[in-house]
Amino acid sequence: MTGLDARLVVERDSFRLDLHLRVPAGGVLALLGPNGAGKTTALAALAGAVPLGSEGRVVLDGRVLDDAGTGVHVDLARRSVGWVFQDPLLFPHLTVAQNAAFGLRAGGVPRREAARQAGEWLDRFGIAALADARPRAISGGQAQRAALARALAPQPHLLLLDEPLAALDVEVREEIRRDLRDRLRQHPGCTVLVTHDAADAVRLADEIVILESGRAVQRGSAESLRGAPATPYVAAMFPPA
């Protein structure tokens, strides 16, 4: 397990994203930046959902997922890349437990075993009691917990989190953030978190990359950013204590 090594090059009209990301196995990297900086594009590129420009390359745990030079491209379904959005996007026709078991079943885990593991994941996110509920019957916070359990259950080599807490109430957000941190600490794969909330980055990530206009303007721990902000945006997000 060597983690993620990605050079993301995406050119679209006047916008150009050029970003080098390295995340060690088990590490959590936060991409923080203002709207339009290219955070979501970077996630989509890691998922293989947008084509990479020249020199673009994604290597995950030693496996080449994308290489613009050689034309290698691995489909999202075969990348072992989990993806959680701001909306939970639980499959409405399945119960919470069936949602959590979906990735395991798709990966060929037998029904009974998938159900058992899915139950454990629901338990880890504190929603075991909702296993048989339908998505429309549960709250937004509960649904996002289920979505996180669903994404983690197949143990993806890379987990992409796109503003996973942004749609939640403040108190709920804090609770889930705490649970998510515990889970990510035990997750053997790497995680890339996109957020515009410095608190998410500080609490969840080992390393923070500040993205502005498609480029990384600064990277490091929260302390190092606070100590020497490279741009006004960084200074605003990490004000001196």
């Binding site: 998922a47 999202l76 379904a77 996007l89 499959f91 979906f102 990735g103 798709a106 197949p154």
Partner: peptide, 20 residues
Amino acid sequence: RYAVVAASLGASRWHAFRRV
């Protein structure tokens, strides 16, 4: 996005179409 989520969970296109 439902189909994207299904793919990110490892579902093949056929599996995603049929199950989601």
